[in-house]
């Protein structure tokens, strides 16, 4: 369905899915991303989510549609970007990724990527080892997404992460965000070098 040519016309829309399991903070990450692009950067955004029993474990997802134009249909029709923090989420949602869409995975939690053509980062491991808290894997991945896509300005995402982070964890979250920027920058540099 995502490979349907119809969707190629929707160039004013960019559709993002952040997926994984309940408890990984993906809804919050989706809200942060939407707020940065929408409220801070002034684009139109819609953030939706899977809601219900999944919210307490199992597969979880947050979707964000962004456009400079009016967004009519609020849900993704063909993903431009899929973040998958679990194998299950990756398997479930990869088919919704359109051709040339970007796949970003957690290298430790997605053992069998459906395609070699993806960005792979050890988000959860970095959260634990570099920041000292596994909960910030979501924000590290946000940093990577912003670095790779430039969908939101860095200042905007910083502002939002600071204001939306649970009280007392602002510094940790900002550090995580910077780490996300950094690993993505390095990865893109090395990919380019490899290509040359």
């Amino acid at each position: 369905m995502s490979k349907n040519k119809n969707h190629q016309a929707q160039s004013d829309r960019y559709e993002i899915r952040l997926s994984g399991s309940g408890g990984q903070g993906l809804i919050l990450a989706g809200v942060m991303l939407a707020e940065a692009m929408g409220v801070e950067d002034g684009k139109n955004v819609v953030q939706t989510q899977s809601y219900g029993p999944e919210a307490r474990g199992g597969a979880s997802r947050a979707d964000v549609v962004v456009s400079s134009d009016t967004i009519y249909y609020p849900k993704p029709m063909g993903l431009d970007l899929l973040l998958a923090l679990t194998q299950e989420a990756c398997d479930t949602y990869f088919s919704a990724l359109r051709e040339n869409g970007i796949l970003i995975i957690d290298s430790d939690l997605v053992h069998q990527p459906p395609t070699p053509d993806c960005y792979s980062f050890p988000f959860t491991m970095l959260a634990k080892n570099e920041i000292g808290h596994v909960m910030v894997a979501n924000v590290i991945s946000l940093g990577a997404i912003v670095e790779i896509t430039r969908l939101a300005s860095k200042d905007s995402i910083k502002t939002v992460v600071k204001s939306r982070a649970p009280v007392g964890t602002e510094e940790k979250n900002l550090k995580a965000l910077e780490l996300g920027f950094k690993i993505a920058k390095e990865k893109m540099k090395s990919t380019r070098t490899a290509a040359v």
Partner: peptide, 10 residues
């Protein structure tokens, strides 16, 4: 409805 109730927009 459930979708509008829970979705976020500007």
């Amino acid at each position: 409805d459930e979708v509008i109730g829970h979705m976020r927009e500007k």
